[in-house]
Amino acid sequence: MTDLAERLTALDARIADAARAVGRDPGALTRIVVTKFHPAQVVADLAALGVRDVGENRQQELTAKRAALQQVEGPAADVRWHFIGQLQSKKARAVRAASDCVHSVDRDRVADALHAADPDGSVLDVFLQVNLTDDPGRGGISPGEVETLAEHVAARCPSLRVCGVMAVAPLTQAPAAAFERLAAAADAVRRVVPDAAWMSAGMSGDFAEAIAAGATHLRIGTAITGPRPADG
């Protein structure tokens, strides 16, 4: 717990420094702690340290951890859960049931499945995932098609709220250049949904570049949680 607290404090100081360096308010950023492969107790420990946003990549892990922590008293029961992994249409119902926000809507079919899972329920915040690589097999829609996807979600999926865009910087490109392309995609989405002001970008190794490009939501894993468990 002491190590976790120290890493969290150190990382938040680095985030604040990166924000101030480009004239941004650190308080306007949402730091999501990615807890994949770590036990639910780590989420409980993080919540006790003041963390309110956690992210999971896999539906089964998300569902299990949220269910476990909703049975306990204390801050862990009020954590906001972000699904940040690739989403298959067949898992949309389970993801929607366990998520407060989904970062990986990348095609009409996924959006339709999320909407159909609970069309009359509470509105679900979603990001449109953009593929910044040249590999069409990677998750995300191409930057040139993101505006069309935004139009589809806004018109056909009223139970979803398009909040912005998400991407992972490719290893073959400088993060700053990649996030500039994501910022351009964000501009395209705002032509359809003017208040879609969020940008989910930046991980442990490139959050400073993401902040400089306008990221509002940072997805930080090992810099806070430490190494994954040996069986992860």
Rank of each mutant, 00 (worst) to 15 (best):
T63C: 06
V110C: 08
A48E: 11
D118M: 08
V72Y: 01
R58H: 10
V54M: 01
L29P: 13
R109F: 14
A97I: 08
C101S: 10
Q88R: 12
G85Y: 00
Q88P: 15
V126Q: 03
D17T: 14
A116S: 11
V51T: 04
R31Y: 07
D118C: 07
Q88S: 11
T35K: 07
N57C: 05
I15H: 03
V54P: 04
A97F: 04
F37W: 14
L46E: 12
I84V: 00
I15T: 08
A16V: 01
V42Q: 14
T63K: 08
D100K: 05
A97S: 12
R24W: 08
D108C: 14
R66S: 06
H82I: 00
H103D: 12
V105N: 12
V110D: 01
D108N: 15
R93W: 02
F83M: 15
V34F: 05
I15C: 08
A21Q: 10
P39G: 12
A64N: 14
Q59S: 14
Q59R: 10
D17E: 15
H103N: 11
H82G: 06
V105S: 11
A76E: 05
V105R: 06
Q41V: 11
D78Q: 10
D100N: 15
A21R: 15
T30H: 02
K36N: 09
H115L: 12
A98I: 03
V22G: 08
P26I: 02
G55M: 03
R52G: 00
L29E: 08
S89D: 15
A67T: 15
N57L: 02
G55S: 15
F127E: 07
T35I: 07
V105A: 11
L128V: 06
D25R: 13
P119C: 07
R107F: 07
A98V: 03
H82A: 06
A40M: 10
Q41I: 10
A18M: 13
V54K: 09
V110N: 03
H115N: 10
D118N: 09
V33E: 05
E73V: 02
V72C: 06
G27F: 06
E56F: 00
L69T: 03
D17S: 12
R58V: 03
G55E: 07
K36L: 02
I32E: 06
V105Y: 10
G27L: 06
D45M: 09
A94Q: 14
D120L: 13
I15A: 03
R80P: 02
G50A: 11
E61W: 01
G74A: 07
I84Q: 05
A18Y: 02
L87N: 07
G74Y: 07
V110S: 03
H82R: 00
G74F: 00
G121F: 02
A21Y: 00
V34G: 05
R20V: 03
V123W: 04
A116N: 14
R96Q: 06
S122Q: 14
R24M: 09
A47I: 04
D112N: 15
A113T: 11
Q59I: 03
R52I: 05
K91C: 09
